[in-house]
Design a binder for these strands. Structure first.
Lengths: 223, 223
DNA sequence: TCAAAAGTGTTCGTAGTACACCCATGT
DNA sequence: ACATGGGTGTACTACGAACACTTTTGA
């Protein structure tokens, strides 16, 4: 029985200059296989699953700027890998937009809406990761791990839009995240765009660690 | 390397007649060990982790009425079990109040606020399970797995109170769960209590499967 | 001075909390 | 009748959605 670690690592990237930035996932295709796979590998004897996931991403994918990493469910169907019984402990990883990332030759970032053929149940793992990310965007500060250190609100809005799959109102996003003390104004301003326009104020996330910001939508404790 | 399955199984039980019902967890102490443990064991070759968890609970604990079972995080610290490297895939299980449960001699239900000494990291697993349960009570119909088939609102209120650890307003609970179509009135009425009082209407959960009822507290999709 | 982008303010709806008050039953 | 518990109704609050309007810049 094998135990493997698989990571769905996301980054918001500009796929082409014309269109809006997109949520992308890191995939690898060793030995020029036909289908792409999630990066991962076997756990070592002296490491936890999460350190193993981080090590494998650094060693094999040269990805060292994973700002957030969390466990997804374990995939344990006896037949998920035909050859040997393999239990996959899966992870969601997030890389900020300003982190350099030059994946090796056999790896590449793929827009989540244009995924190629994937091995085994890796498509389901990516779907679970997307779902988890979308859910946590609404009640935690998880976007800190996708955003650059400083950013104008319009850019943050694009990040949310790419991760959620639908437009969000930049105005209200600022109000919500400010009220919850998720983001703070830095006092600095950015550069105005190519076609003129008011220079934007720059914001930053208050924390660099996951924090639940809206714990009880309902049934909150008295007082 | 061993892979074990451990389950934190909860049931709301009347510990003593005088006090309010309490959230209890099923523990076992084989061979009269000093510390108690969560039920579990090794996975078989042809089963998934969840079927393994269900099988082990039925075989060893004679618990067959697990209405809801879901994965918690995997505990993978190399030293969590001193003797052999053991990765624990943990589960949260819920048993309705009206399910018969006569655990075998080496097992017993323990109130979560009066836990005995526990082996290894089992206390942390129970804490994670409680946390998950409390969170899901506020945005899913997960209480279906704790409540009996039919119940007066006062009883459901006690269940929520026991699981959350604080009082909930029965009146508002009815309104919230009705609006979300989590519970429905059955049209029947229960028996009045020992000291008189109006006989309560009986309600039932609309579904017997986990459903997210309040997906987006905020940032909901447009329209 | 005009277009483009950013920021402010206002209105509206709705969900949830708290709590007072009314109803039905056994003793 | 009255105590006991169940149920209904009604403010009140707060948060978020939508959108109009104002401000600041480059061309």
């Amino acid at each position: 029985m094998r135990v493997e670690v698989l990571s769905a690592v996301f980054q918001i990237r500009e796929v082409d200059a014309a269109s809006a930035p997109m949520l992308c996932v890191l995939l690898t295709r060793p030995d020029s296989a036909t289908a792409w796979s999630l990066p991962g590998g076997d756990i070592a004897d002296d490491e936890t699953l999460s350190t193993s996931a981080r090590r494998l991403l650094a060693e094999r994918m040269d990805v060292r700027d994973v700002a957030h990493l969390e466990q997804l469910v374990v995939f344990s169907d006896p037949d998920r890998v035909p050859t040997t019984r393999t239990i996959a402990s899966t992870y969601l990883g997030l890389v900020p937009t300003d982190a350099p990332s030059a994946p090796p030759g056999d790896a590449a970032w793929h827009g989540v809406d244009r995924l190629p053929d994937l091995t085994f149940d890796h498509a389901a793992i990516i779907a679970a990761a997307r779902h988890r990310l979308a859910a946590k965007l609404s009640y935690t500060n998880i976007a800190f791990a996708l955003a650059p250190a400083r950013f104008p609100m319009s850019e943050l809005s694009e990040i949310y839009c790419a991760a959620l799959g639908y437009a969000v109102d930049t105005t209200n996003l600022l109000r919500i995240l400010s009220r919850r003390s998720v983001i703070v104004a830095t006092g600095t301003v950015g550069k105005t765009g190519r076609a003129g326009g008011r220079p934007p104020a720059l914001y930053a996330f208050a924390d660099n660690e996951l924090r639940v910001t809206d714990e009880f939508a309902t049934l909150r404790p008295p007082m």
